[in-house]
Design a protein around this nucleic acid. Structure first.
Lengths: 220, 220, 220, 220
DNA sequence: AATGAATGAGGGTTCATTCAT
DNA sequence: AATGAATGAACCCTCATTCAT
């Protein structure tokens, strides 16, 4: 950096920033992919994603070298927002079960169902960036669950893995529908499920409380 | 049927009786398709179904004109067995909630998750045979739900539609996985959901109780 | 094999023989691929091969799981025929140089240029079947070369690798042409090259005589 | 050119003079394209050429409207240098066959193999600039060939077309390889070919001596 | 003038469906 | 009736070319 550079406000940053339009496209693709992943699952045609994002298919490939990379980015962005929501809920809700309650509905809004490809064999959970976000999200959700269990509002025989998978399943759209009129069911189901989570437990659960680690193991 | 047909002793019966081996093949294909649908989701390659059934792919097409017809038959067979289970549970379980409880787990065993394509736009629920099975199954489940609500064991603000959709969602396969280690979750989720269904209700549900009719309407 | 089987002339062989039409298609594809490989090189569009063979592209994939497998089969068939030609020339030609001469022109006819993908990194020369044919062909050509060198008709400072590569290069068609009027050149070039190969050597060659082993090493 | 233009002292010269950096880029692109053509063959990705030249892909298109134009420029530059080499060899070598000998190896160095697209149907040899360079190169090579034939060192039954095509063929890159360890063959092949060209002829050539005109005709 | 970005077309491969044995 | 084989359409991905900064 010379003095001349320092004086020039328009100098390009060293880490090439994306052009405005490219950056916009990138975000539109991630958003479209998030929705499409929730709706179609991990095999969603990438052409469909591109179409929804309003870009050519090759543009998608310019930004994401292949399907895995696109899914990775979607996963990261969904996890980041979900973690944030979880942290906020924990920090802002005075009541422990209210925090859980709020988190569940906000996670649904953030399309936590788009994380389903994380469970497939192809997905690399060892990737450092992914591992980092997983840990952040995990910590935040565990904190919510722990607090609600410590206050005696959440049944003690469940764990974060149970919550995450059920949440994903219940928020998945019906196949082949444009999700029309489906959200209306989802809220009811989540609420019923949350009622089932409340302490005191109304039944004895089979199996053992599933953690996020178990999900990893379950893949094999 | 003409008079000539009537006079012909060798005429084939209306429901053409299949040769023993053909009939066996047909059943093997439906069984394989049910499992494969649960495992791979609705996009399972038909060659995979044929392979699992141990027949050539063209044999599959001799029995089922296309993917839709195969799914229709799977749907019918799952519904028939599910209805039977519901009827049995109602008849045999003295306790109203136990009947519901037993039905839910048996429906999972019968792969009620394979019914999810039924909810898609492409599926023709007006088909007489389908409509018949839907009605039979519906009736049996409504009877279970009604009884449990009348005995005050099941919260009154839910309806059969809520139950069916949640049941389907919670037992649907995780897309893209070989479902490894997944069943282990399903039982826990169902139990938690059932706990949420018990009276007294632990929350006030948003929306209105959804009937099976609502599902039809919701599709559009 | 039961006695009944033995009496039944129409019994299917244990190693499922291809249907007549499938077998015909397979051969047409290999033939078309041979020509196309010579003309376009190893990146020839497989759709082009299918078109030339008069089959759909998927038929090509039924017979050859991927490009590598197709190239492998072409390689095997060209090597087999080339080896046969070499063996025949050696056995039938009383004059040592005549045998070499005859082999060179017959190898051109057999499209030895189609072997060019063998030199690419992707090609697996360790495959047992390939290795076998390479060895057979190599032996036959070495025998021809050796005899001509022993009789003092072929210059001693060249080896089979020199011959093979030059033969491939000189018989490759000009790119983008339908080979129109090109064969006319090829014969002249081969003859000139053969004249250069005759003993006594008219120059001292740079480098060392290249064997087929060197070709393998050269890839890396 | 109008009179107005003529009066305008600031008018750009007919051969628009490029800015120094633009001119440098242009040359770097042609050089990179020459090497890349030899290495990858005529289907080399233009992005690869741009990358090697150290410019953006659009810069390449600013200089060369399309692939054909780039190849044309490469062809022109190779021909120009080849012609120069031929003229120098003729002028500087006292021995007639030595001139031919020197030219052949220098042409290989100048990547005369990159001229192979010139022989394809798509290439426009009627283009004045191309025609001019062809003529210059042709004249120089004919002079070399003629002299060597007149001195009785070069067999009389070959013509410049034979030489040019064989030279191109023998120096063409092996398709699909990174040309690793290939140059080592080329020198030997050229030398063997030259030995075959020496008088007295060791065989009777089939066909008639091919001139460059014949190549044009051969394409059709 | 130089460039990063966008795009449509094309080739590779799979799969639902049809055909021929 | 059963089956292996054939096929075209769909999707993935790359690349030549054009566009916008």
């Amino acid at each position: 950096m010379t003095d001349l550079d320092a004086m020039d406000a328009t100098v390009k940053p060293r880490t090439a920033r994306l052009r405005a339009d490219a950056s916009r496209n990138r975000e539109r693709i991630v958003a479209a992919a998030t929705e499409a992943l929730v709706e179609f699952g991990p095999d969603v045609p990438l052409d469909e994603v591109a179409r929804r994002a309003g870009v050519g298919n090759a543009t998608l490939y310019r930004h994401f070298s292949d399907r895995g990379e696109l899914i990775r980015q979607v996963t990261l962005s969904v996890m980041a927002r979900t973690a944030q929501r979880a942290e906020d809920a924990l920090a802002e809700e005075p009541d422990a079960f209210s925090a859980l309650y709020r988190f569940v509905f906000e996670a649904a809004e953030e399309r936590i169902g788009a994380l389903c490809p994380m469970l497939s064999e192809a997905f690399d959970r060892e990737d450092p960036e992914v591992a980092g976000q997983v840990q952040r999200m995990e910590r935040a959700i565990i904190a919510i669950v722990d607090r609600a269990q410590r206050t005696g509002q959440l049944r003690p025989d469940i764990a974060v893995g149970d919550l995450m998978v059920a949440l994903t399943q219940l928020t998945r759209p019906l196949p082949g529908t444009g999700c029309v009129g489906f959200d209306r069911f989802v809220h009811r189901h989540l609420q019923l499920f949350l009622d089932g989570l409340r302490a005191p437990a109304r039944s004895v659960l089979v199996g053992t409380a599933a953690t996020l680690e178990d999900l990893k193991a379950g893949r094999k």
